[in-house]
């Protein structure tokens, strides 16, 4: 699905390079459920952003679904990203001014789906996540767990092959966290969606098929479960 070769990300501070990622190489196969762990500041989120093509590495080679990302232009990268990737955030990042329905619909608008198509797809998704009754509410009217459900529904709406989740349960209580993780596991198993998540919790990491430990910008260990 994707492979990173000798990826580094650093900032120039004075005359010194301050490495966030240092010579990281990583292969992820289709259908995997990878959990990235590590202490704060070890480069987990940066790695996730680079995989998601939101951020560019300073050095290294990046292949995604058969494309050499490091050679692509901005526009092509955006197209690739739109087609393959869905993002889930710790802070949900729903748009406050839009209703649940509209939040979920937004990515479809940017992919130029027609109005009637959008309606059908969003209705399916609301049904599947059992939040039909909440479709006209605003994010502020939902609990954290519900907001994250909407966030995941929104990430899935364009049928991405890869879901990138940055501490998806970080702001939730344990019961809500379990629900979300079980949802991820189900998506991975039944829909064959590749998932890469960043997490602090050993328990959540256990839902995946592989755990990668980062330390000071380097891969410390990679354990298949």
């Amino acid at each position: 699905m994707l492979s990173l070769k000798n990826i580094s990300k650093y900032y120039q501070i004075g005359g010194n390079k301050s490495f966030v990622l240092n010579n990281v190489s990583l292969e992820v196969e289709e259908g995997e459920f990878v959990s990235i762990m590590g202490p704060s500041g070890s480069g987990k989120s940066t790695l996730l952003n680079i995989i998601g093509m939101l951020d560019e590495p300073s050095e290294g080679y990046h292949y995604f679904a058969g494309n050499a990302v490091h050679q692509l232009k901005e526009k092509q990268r955006a197209a690739l990203y739109k087609q393959y990737v869905g993002f889930v955030f710790q802070a949900y990042h729903l748009i406050d001014e839009l209703t649940v329905y509209e939040n979920i619909e937004t990515p479809l608008i940017y992919q130029n789906y027609s109005g009637s198509d959008r309606k059908a797809i969003v209705a399916d998704m609301l049904d599947r996540f059992q939040i039909v009754g909440k479709k006209d509410l605003f994010p502020a009217q939902l609990s954290g767990g519900q907001q994250q459900l909407v966030g995941i529904a929104r990430a899935l709406i364009t049928k991405p092959k890869l879901i990138l989740a940055d501490e998806p349960t970080g702001n939730l209580n344990s019961k809500q966290g379990i629900e979300i993780m079980e949802l991820f596991a189900k998506l991975n198993k039944e829909d064959k969606v590749t998932i890469i998540q960043v997490t602090h919790s050993e328990k959540n990491a256990g839902y995946g098929s592989r755990i990668i430990n980062l330390l000071d910008g380097k891969i410390d260990s990679s354990i298949k479960l």
Binding site: L54, A78, Y81, K82, F87, H93, L94, I95, D96, E97, T106, P107, Y110, Q111, R154, T158
Partner: peptide
Amino acid sequence: TKEIGIRKVLGASISN
């Protein structure tokens, strides 16, 4: 700023 960021992540182009 936040909304713009979210929309961008959701696939909005610059012209959008």
